[in-house]
Write a protein that binds this DNA or RNA. Structure first.
Length: 202
DNA sequence: AGTGCGATTGACT
DNA sequence: GTCAATCGCACTA
């Protein structure tokens, strides 16, 4: 069997319907990306929750052309360009009309590593998808994937291989100024593929 | 219509 | 450690 065939999409019904629960749940799960040259994928080792009433969340001020995918039923991709430089992959959460989501911040590369190296232009395994912008580049994710249903086999989806991610840590989120003190970041402890300062990764 | 500013990264001192 | 790149968007007027 193929990597894609071995890892069918998660059922939407199994996704927690609260944002923090989803952020925690996605640790250890897989992101699968179908590219013309082959399938690439990796294990989620770091997420952040952007919850209702969260001043740092893009849904905070209501729906706009950019963030409309954030308001889709849970399990859809919200992709946006940060700093005019890096794309960010989020998973919409909660019910339709609620602008909340989970940012996928880092992957442990598992499959299609040669393709990821080409996409990124770097060799070092640890640097392929450590950080949300690098992750999107490794998986060649851009705005064309905004709104993708991640619970269906297609260009991009979420899956599981039953792996136990081990000890999970909780910390403040990275790179934000509003609501910065809230502990809404989940990560696999002591994992080399997690981004952020070491002090936040213990 | 103009402006300020990021859920980042990579290069450089 | 510091800092510029780069651009779409939300906000002000």
């Amino acid at each position: 069997m193929s990597f894609a065939g071995d890892h069918p999409p998660l059922a939407r019904a199994e996704l927690p319907d609260d944002t923090v629960g989803l952020a925690r749940y996605l640790i250890g799960k897989l992101v699968v990306r179908a590219l013309p040259e082959g399938t690439v994928g990796g294990r989620i080792v770091e997420t952040e929750a952007y919850v209702a009433g969260d001043a740092a969340g893009h849904g905070y001020r209501g729906m706009t052309p950019r963030n409309r995918s954030l308001f889709l039923e849970r399990g859809h991709a919200y992709v946006y360009l940060a700093y005019g430089v890096s794309f960010m992959l989020n998973v919409s959460s909660e019910a339709p009309g609620i602008g909340t989501g989970v940012l996928i911040r880092a992957l442990e590369p598992l499959h299609g590593i040669a393709i990821m190296r080409l996409n990124r232009g770097v060799e070092r395994l640890r640097d392929l998808a450590r950080g949300p912008g690098r992750l999107a580049a490794a998986l060649r994710i851009d705005r064309s994937l905004d709104g993708t249903d991640l619970c269906r086999e297609g260009p991009l989806w979420l899956a599981s291989d039953g792996h136990d991610p081990g000890a999970i840590g909780l910390s403040t989120r990275i790179g934000i100024s509003k609501d910065a003190e809230r502990p809404l970041r989940f990560y696999v402890r002591e994992n080399p593929f997690v981004s952020g300062p070491a002090a936040l990764n213990r």
